[in-house]
Simulated scan of single mutants.
Amino acid sequence: MSDFKIQSVLITGSSRGLGLEFVQQFLTSPNPPQKIFAACRNPDGPQSQVLKNLSEKHQNVIVVKMDVTDPSSVNESVKEVEKHLNGKPLDLLLNNAGILSHTNLESQTSEDMMNVYNINVVGPMLVTQAYHRLMKRAEGTGKSAIVHISAVLGSLADLPSLFSHYQVISYRCSKAALNMLSRCHSLAYKQDGIISIAIHPGWVKTDMGGDQAPLTKEDSIGAVMKVIYSLSEEQSGTFVDWEGKSIPW
């Protein structure tokens, strides 16, 4: 399969950073999705103002309240999204919400590890679990896709090259776990016509990435969008960077 058709997309963590950039780039794509579900924890908060402005200007942007770590919040969001889909499947789930904590082996605490893991791993697990039924495809009716925003720092093979400069223990462990979750999804949901892939967006200038990062949000997400729109069944279960190049596990 090539030229992946996206009529509907759900993006978690969409109030700022890469998530907000995804919303903006889907809006300006040649064939924008009919439904762009922009999920965030606090739609009425000041951080969500840009997102709210977009939804007021564009009818296809629907802001959805969702705390990815809260099962009841996730399940409530499913009800809202399902009403707007009108019986159609959700084409793309973009598990983007995530956090990074600057810890090393000496400063790492159990509380921080559990908090980061809860958002970066348990969150995508709960969201995908809840939205699975909306993504299922009957044979011959196309494909849906789950895109997990991962990081090269979760690569076990590449660990030695960056470890001394950037330990971030809880973040590394969470992204390695997210990669495993992505592979499990690729196997378990294959029979439902669902692709699952983990994508490293690069080191990007955001609140999380910092000012020293070499990539802008526009360049990173623009490249990731090309990877998404060209997704094929053969890519399911892989780990790639923003340009579609394979990353070792």
Rank of each mutant, 00 (worst) to 15 (best):
M1L: 10
K5M: 08
I6Q: 02
Q7D: 10
S8N: 02
L10P: 07
S15Q: 13
L18V: 05
G19D: 01
L20D: 04
F22T: 05
V23T: 02
V23R: 01
Q25D: 00
L27F: 01
T28K: 15
P32V: 09
K35W: 05
A39L: 00
R41A: 06
N42R: 14
P43W: 04
D44Y: 08
D44V: 07
Q49H: 11
V50R: 06
K52T: 10
L54H: 03
H58E: 02
Q59L: 03
K65E: 08
V68K: 12
K79P: 00
E80T: 04
V81I: 02
V81L: 00
K83G: 00
K83C: 00
H84W: 02
G87M: 04
G87Y: 03
P89F: 01
D91Q: 05
L92K: 05
L93V: 09
L94Q: 04
A97L: 15
T103G: 13
T103K: 12
E111V: 13
N118C: 08
I119D: 11
L126Q: 12
L126A: 10
H132E: 04
R133T: 13
L134D: 01
M135F: 05
M135R: 02
A138N: 14
G142D: 07
K143D: 06
I146A: 08
S150I: 07
A151T: 13
A157I: 15
D158I: 10
P160I: 15
F163H: 13
S164K: 15
V168E: 13
S174R: 12
A177K: 04
A177R: 01
L178R: 12
L178F: 09
M180N: 11
L181Q: 10
H185S: 14
G193E: 07
I194D: 00
A198C: 13
P201C: 01
P201T: 03
D207M: 11
M208C: 10
G210N: 14
P214E: 10
T216W: 05
D219K: 12
I221F: 04
G222A: 03
A223G: 03
M225T: 11
V227K: 00
I228V: 10
Y229R: 14
G237C: 07
V240D: 10
D241H: 09
D241S: 06
E243Q: 15
I247A: 10
W249Q: 08
